[in-house]
Every structure is written in C-alpha cells, then in structure tokens.
Simulated scan of single mutants.
Amino acid sequence: MTDTVAQQTEGARPGVTLGQLGLGSGRLAAAHAVMNEAEAVALARARWSLDVVAATRLATEKDDTFRLDTSQGERFVVKVAHPDEDDGEVAFEAELMRHVHESGYGVPVPELLPSAGGRLLEPVRDGAGRRRLARTMTFAPGIPLDATGTSAPERERVGEMLARLRHATAGFRHPADDRVCAWDVRHLPALHPLLDDVPDAAQRQTLATGLARYTDVVVPQLPSLRGQVLHNDFSTSNLLVDHDTAEFVTGVIDFGDAVHTAIAVDVATALLNQLPRDAARRPVPDLFAEARDVLRGYLRRTDLTETELALLPHLVMGRVVARALITLHRASLIPGNTTYILRNTAPGWAQLAWFLDRTPDEISTTFL
C-alpha cells in the first residue's frame, strides 16, 4: 500500500457512549431467540435454492451461523445477523468481503452467493418473528488456527496474509465504514464504566491501571496514525490453515469487526492472538516471542512507521484490557453463552501483568 492511500485516522471520538459501542443496553448486550438448524435448512433452500440436507451450528458471539451440507456433497455457510444489527453495517461487511474476494491480492475469503433473487443479503423473518438479514457464502477449507500449533515460517505466512489483506482493503470505502466498534481500541477509554462489572477487586484494579496507562501513552498519539478500512479481528479463530500448503492460510473469515481504523490497531489485534496463553503457569521473558514472527512476515510485504512500531505493543495491551472488560460485561448479561464469550479472557491476566511490570518506555522499544 502506498502512502497516498493511507489516511490519517481520527483519535478516540469524544463523548462515545457504551450504547454507541453496542454495549450497555445496545446491540452487543442483547440476547435473542436463536435460529435452529431446521430454520437454516429451510432458509437456504427457499432463498438460495440449495439442496441442503443438513445444517450444523457454528459457535459465534452474536449471530446465528451454520455450515450447510448439500445432497451433492458441497458445503456452504449461512450467517443470519443478530436482529438488532444495523442493516447498513451488515451491508458494509458483505460489500467488503466481495471487494476483497475480487481484489486480486489472493486473500482467501469466502465468496458470497447471490440469492435466487440476485441479492447478497436477504431480509428474513425468524421463528420468533424478528426481521434479520441473511447471507450465504462458500465454505472455506482448512482447520482453525487456534486448533493447531505453528512453526516460525508458518507464523510469518500469517503476517504476510495480514499485509495482503491490508492492501486489498486499502481503497475500499462505504457509508458505514466509520461505525463505532467496541473492539476498535481507539475507543478504549469509553469502556471505563465497564470496570464496575469486574467482580474481582484485584482484577478490577489491574484493568484500571492498564486503562490509565493506555489513556496517557496512546490516546494523545492516535490522531497521528495512518488509517483505512481494515479487518480488525485477524485472530487465530478467524484464520483457517493447512500445514501442507505453501500459503498455509487457506481462509480469512468473519468481517464482523471491520472498520475504518488505524493500521497499527489492526496489526496489534493479530499480534495479541500470538501471545502465550499459559504465561501465568510458564512466565516468559519476551511475551512477543512468537508474535515477532507474524510481524516479520507482515513487514516483508508492507510497512509500519517508527511511531506505529513504538505504539504497537501498547495497542496490544489495550486490546487485552478491552477483551477483559467487554467479555466480562457480556457474560454477565448473556450467561447462556459464557463459555464462548470468555474463551480468551483468562489468559489475559498474566499477559496484562507482563505489560504492567515494565515501564511505558520499555514497552515502546519492543519492536524498535
């Protein structure tokens, strides 16, 4: 990507509320009557004319997603948005996926299938009578990256794929691309009220300390960072891989957190997901030992400025704080989905301790 495409990103928006972030009483806080497998089969048959014989629910945070198996042995995925999801934002995600698929950068995203009516998004009524938007796409091959180990060269392939995705999304714009996303750590200070939802006093104080450091070190520099539309959730659960292929990454899925944000924020999310999950049991001198491989591959295909490299580890810390605050809050509101919501929360306490055991200046030199 050239510097002429990258734009300066705005910093944290003043006055952003939990409701705007989809928290509090907003969209991400809401449970809904889930769609069942029979509904998914009927939907795919009626709207996409697919001869579906079985549907298998896939674990998700807030929508209903199913793997579809057809009588011809083909596989597809149908995703039905949360009833409270904004139509414009769902359209943004769908159009972005199509743009990346057609970009020519070789990013293996699922291909959206037009419905029998020629639409990428189909408005439907679920069994509870609520209007929702549905989309169907090809089933990406491979196994989830969070279900397997990786070698250093494979992690470099992950970084290269993130860079290719950055190039693919660089020129994309949409009226909803500036949505306010809870997982965009530019808005981390707005999550401060969620400290009240942390039941453990020691953990609450740790998160408050991390939040204060982020506010002091990162927030003043956010307006200087380059920005564009980005995936913003390049996590191990959103990457499909195959150890026997040269590319290694065979699928990039879930554009649900895509947004126009800082390039460094996008990279920080990818690095976060390479941190050791057992740092509490097995303390490490370098929390980024494996994440450096991802960054090395990324920088082989694109660039980061010295300012971005200095802020990058602080942004990773900010994502650790955000993950704890958001997941603990949502688990308290939707107890029926706590296993999925909290699946990555516990490892974050030791990761956050690693950051706070070091001075901000020490953290800033991590990648310099």
Rank of each mutant, 00 (worst) to 15 (best):
R27V: 15
L23K: 03
A33T: 15
A38L: 14
L50A: 06
S25P: 01
L23D: 11
G19I: 01
R27A: 15
Q20V: 05
V41E: 05
T17C: 02
A29D: 12
R45D: 05
R47A: 14
R27Q: 10
E39S: 06
Q8P: 01
R27G: 09
V34E: 14
A44K: 03
Q8D: 07
L28W: 13
G26F: 10
A46K: 04
L28C: 01
Q8W: 09
R27N: 10
S49M: 00
L21A: 10
E37G: 07
A33W: 12
R13L: 14
N36Y: 02
S49P: 00
A29V: 04
G15Q: 08
A31T: 12
T9N: 12
Q20D: 08
E37K: 04
M35A: 14
S49N: 09
A29E: 06
A12W: 12
L43V: 08
L43A: 12
A40I: 09
S49Q: 13
A33F: 11
R13Y: 02
A30T: 11
L28T: 00
Q20E: 15
E39D: 09
Q20K: 08
L43W: 12
N36T: 11
R13G: 06
M35F: 10
S49L: 03
L50V: 10
L50M: 08
G24I: 10
R47L: 01
A40E: 04
V34F: 06
E39V: 05
R13H: 11
P14M: 04
V41Q: 03
T9D: 12
A44W: 07
N36I: 00
E10P: 07
A42S: 11
A38P: 01
L18Q: 09
A12S: 14
L50H: 06
P14E: 13
A29F: 03
A30W: 02
L43R: 01
L21I: 08
A31Y: 02
L43N: 07
A30Q: 15
R47I: 01
G11M: 10
Q8R: 15
L18Y: 13
L28Q: 01
R45G: 15
A42F: 00
A44L: 10
R47C: 13
L43F: 07
G24V: 11
Q8M: 08
A40S: 08
G24Q: 10
N36A: 09
A29G: 15
G15A: 12
S49G: 06
G19N: 11
E37S: 14
G19M: 06
R45S: 08
M35H: 06
N36S: 07
S49C: 02
H32Y: 13
L50K: 03
L18N: 08
A31F: 01
